[in-house]
Amino acid sequence: MCLLFFGGFTTGKSLDVNEFKAYAKSVDEISTPQEYNIIALGEVTHGNKEFQQLKLEVFKKLVEEHRVHSFALEGDFGGCEEVNQYIHGGEGTLKEIVQKIGFQIYKTEEMMQLIEYMREYNDDAEEEQLNFYGFDMQRIRYSFDALKKECVAEGVDLSFLDNFIIDGQWNQNYSYEEKKDLLMKLKKTLELKEFNGDLIHFVDVLLQNIEVLHRKDTDGSLLRDQYMAENVSWILQKEQQRGNDCIFISGHNEHVAKWGSYDSMGKLLSNQYRYYVIGTNFYKTRCNLPEGNHKRTIQTFYSHDPLAKTAKLAGFKMCWIDFSSLEEGTEIERHADAYTYMGTLGESYSIMNRFLPPSYRMFQPPTTLYDSMIYVSNASPTKIIE
């Protein structure tokens, strides 16, 4: 019964093709209202070229039409600061820089192209330059390195943190309480010396990492979304101080979505800011996924999404649907408002994905989660750069 509920192994039903064509637009035609503080782009998988390419396509459009000057990624906070230094003329190669974002999924040609665009833009910019941020806290190496470098330069004694982190990992000789107490001691020292918020936030990110690792299963996942929302809020406030009232962020669909029943990053941000989110989905994906032992595999899945299937039948390789444009009573509007099958693949794979459609699909109303969606008919796998 569970398999049938999640659509089984078929490709699903479709809607009226002509009606769909009347609302479908190209990605070049994406328009978002000017009054939003945060514009988010989701990716239904981490292992497809098209969803990584969309980051650059949508960001370019926002830079040109909305004067957005910052890009924030579901990537390591400290590692993305290394990227930010690079796009402002820092040393290194593109291949070296993408390695620092903290996750294998970003070691791709598509991410290199995004970073290269930002560096070239800044090289030519006469006024406001672009900035690159990360809002995840699952890695600690680069955040700690940046913190240590700045503290040493400012004459802050960090001898009490000797051997605190070894090879980018917490020293296991320190307990959860000891790690937290030492970082809180450092944070208090920095606050008393009135250091800038950037330096103190590196401490906050390290504290976030400790807390997430300390929690188990669902609690850790919920806390991670909460902390990502806090980090995005910090990024927005930093950009607003520079005179920029809107930022662009990108992460997995499940994080950026405005869930009704789950306190995702997107839901938390939408409760606090003027938040616009573009979701993505595939009709068919050949997705690059990890399968253990540092190996990856290419696996094929169908989302069973009637909107994605209709996009395929209508002849679109990729198209955008603005849910606010759908006329009441139309078939497409009814399906967008109703519980609908959609794909969802993270950075994991097991043999159970072949037998359990619920492991790579969700059943939610698209308009509850997103303001609009981009549909890709045939998503192709990324190639990881070693």
Rank of each mutant, 00 (worst) to 15 (best):
N163I: 00
G251Q: 05
M112R: 05
V212K: 10
I235Y: 01
E82N: 10
S348Y: 14
A146Y: 09
Y86V: 04
A336C: 15
S359T: 06
R119V: 02
I351H: 07
D322T: 04
G346S: 08
M112C: 06
L268R: 15
P306S: 06
Y23A: 02
D371V: 14
G89A: 04
Y360G: 07
H46S: 10
E211M: 12
A314S: 03
S26P: 00
N231Q: 01
K107P: 01
F135C: 06
F248Q: 13
D263T: 09
K95R: 08
W170Q: 00
L345A: 11
I200A: 00
D263M: 13
Q237H: 15
N37D: 15
L73H: 03
K55M: 09
K61E: 07
G92F: 02
L54E: 10
D162N: 11
D145G: 02
G90R: 02
I165N: 07
Y262K: 11
K188P: 00
E29Q: 14
L369K: 12
S380Q: 15
M373G: 12
H255P: 08
K107L: 09
K187T: 04
K179R: 15
N37C: 13
D76L: 07
K309G: 11
C246T: 15
E239T: 04
F355L: 06
K185R: 15
N244Y: 12
L307A: 05
F248H: 14
D136F: 13
K100R: 14
A153P: 00
L183M: 08
Y262G: 03
D145P: 01
C2T: 15
Q52T: 03
N378L: 12
N48W: 04
M228Y: 06
K317D: 14
V27F: 08
I332C: 09
I30P: 09
D245E: 11
I278H: 14
E19A: 06
T330R: 12
I235R: 02
G266R: 01
Q208A: 09
A257W: 13
V232L: 06
T218F: 13
Y273S: 10
N163D: 05
M118W: 10
N131D: 11
P33F: 06
I87F: 11
T285R: 10
R139V: 13
S31N: 10
K258T: 06
D337N: 15
R139E: 13
N209E: 03
N84C: 09
K107A: 09
D322F: 07
E82W: 04
Y36W: 02
R296G: 12
I30C: 12
F323H: 06
T218R: 12
K216G: 09
A72H: 07
F20E: 01
L369H: 10
T297P: 01
A40D: 06
N231G: 03
Y176P: 01
V63T: 14
S70Y: 07
K238P: 05
L199Q: 03
M184L: 12
L183Y: 09
Y23N: 03
G7D: 01
E150Q: 00
E328N: 13
C319T: 09
Y360L: 09
V44R: 11
E239G: 06
K180F: 11
I39C: 04
M111K: 02
K383C: 05
E35Q: 03
F144R: 04
S359D: 05
T300A: 14
Q113K: 15
